[in-house]
């Protein structure tokens, strides 16, 4: 349902998104049966395809041609997919979006090879773009994303981290790839540098807002909506913004500590979620997310007149207000 709503926001791009979907299938085709199955599995799991959408929207500010732009949009989605496959090994996750993960369906090694295969395919596609700057942006982004994940592991279980640490982490974990998607679309389509710069900033702010909402939803959505137990982030030791905002609340802190110690029972998880949901931390986190959203909307105003400005605005608002 939510995905349907999102699709309506970029209805003008539907035929181009179908091209991207087709290319994703081609890109993931493999002579290995396991990789072929794993790829199909990933494609069926769907996803919002938000990164390709941002690439295409960014490209609308330059010389737009789907045959060229697919070579940027497809790798961005593939990089996202590959990182999810590896993340499931890192998190030892059995389920993603309610479906078995590649690592649980086969094993950790196959998941590693599948991720490496998808990363490689992403770069193969990208090399159809003969623009040095685009490659430098994407490669830098890839390195920084991993650095962000390394920091996330370093910061795990550390309740005494600051909100600044959290922002630094989600910037690299989520905002960078969205930011680069917007920027790369513009760069590859030959748009002005200033346009690419504003799109980059727009993507960054949207990404920050999006991740904060994601972290809030991990606590406020139901297990069924999430396809995993609510509160999983904390149970895995990831300290998110709502938890950082609530950690000094004496009624909540013991539950946070319990979750981090790995001793939290099911009834305690339920109490914890109830307390979190009624705390001010959720509202505060929403407020911070909204501040980023407003900054994103401001960046749109700086862009030259173009019919896709409305789509950018609608998608940003959707991402900043989504319910799950």
């Amino acid at each position: 349902m939510e995905k349907m709503k999102l699709k309506l926001l970029y209805a003008d791009l539907q035929s181009d998104i179908r091209v991207i979907e087709k290319e994703l299938e081609t890109a993931l085709d493999s002579s290995s049966h396991y990789l072929k199955d794993a790829s199909l599995h990933l494609l069926k799991a769907g996803g919002k395809r938000i990164r390709p959408v941002f690439v295409l929207l960014g490209a609308k500010f330059g010389q737009y041609n789907i045959d060229d732009m697919k070579n940027v949009a497809v790798p961005l989605e593939l990089i996202h997919m590959a990182s999810l496959v590896h993340d499931d090994v890192i998190d030892d996750a059995e389920l993603r979006r309610g479906r078995p993960t590649v690592k649980s369906q086969w094993n950790n090694r196959v998941a590693m090879y599948a991720g490496d295969f998808i990363f490689a395919r992403a770069l193969e596609y990208m090399t159809n773009i003969q623009n040095e700057k685009a490659h430098q942006i994407l490669s830098k982004t890839m390195v920084e994303i991993v650095q962000g994940e390394i920091i996330q592991i370093e910061d795990k279980m550390h309740l005494n981290q600051s909100i600044r640490d959290y922002f630094r982490r989600i910037k690299r974990k989520t905002a960078l790839l969205i930011s680069s998607s917007c920027q790369l679309g513009a760069v590859a389509a030959g748009a002005d540098d200033s346009v690419a710069h504003h799109l980059k900033k727009f993507g960054y702010y949207v990404g920050m807002s999006f991740q904060i909402i994601d972290d809030v939803l991990d606590l406020t959505a139901t297990d069924k909506q999430l396809g995993k137990p609510a509160g999983s982030d904390l149970l895995q030791g990831n300290i998110t913004l709502p938890v950082l905002l609530a950690k000094n609340d004496s009624a909540i802190r013991p539950y946070i500590e319990k979750a981090l110690s790995g001793d939290m029972k099911e009834d305690e998880r339920q109490v914890f979620l109830k307390k979190m949901r009624s705390s001010n931390a959720i509202n505060e986190a929403y407020h911070i997310s909204n501040l980023y959203l407003q900054k994103a909307l401001k960046e749109i105003e700086e862009l030259p007149a173009n019919s896709v400005k409305k789509s950018l605005k609608d998608i940003a608002l959707y991402m900043g207000k989504r319910k799950f």
Binding site: S83, H86, V89, I90, M112, G115, D116, F119, L123, M126, T127, Q130, E132, H135, Q136, L138, S139, K140, M142, V143, I145, V146, Q147, E149, I150, I153
Partner: peptide, 24 residues
């Protein structure tokens, strides 16, 4: 897991900097 991904990113960054996109 992340070390491997980091080294992968570094290989791409190294070739993008030369630049040698054909080798990528």
């Amino acid at each position: 897991v992340l070390a491997g991904d980091y080294y992968s990113g570094m290989y791409y960054a190294t070739l993008a900097k030369i630049p040698d996109i054909e080798l990528v």
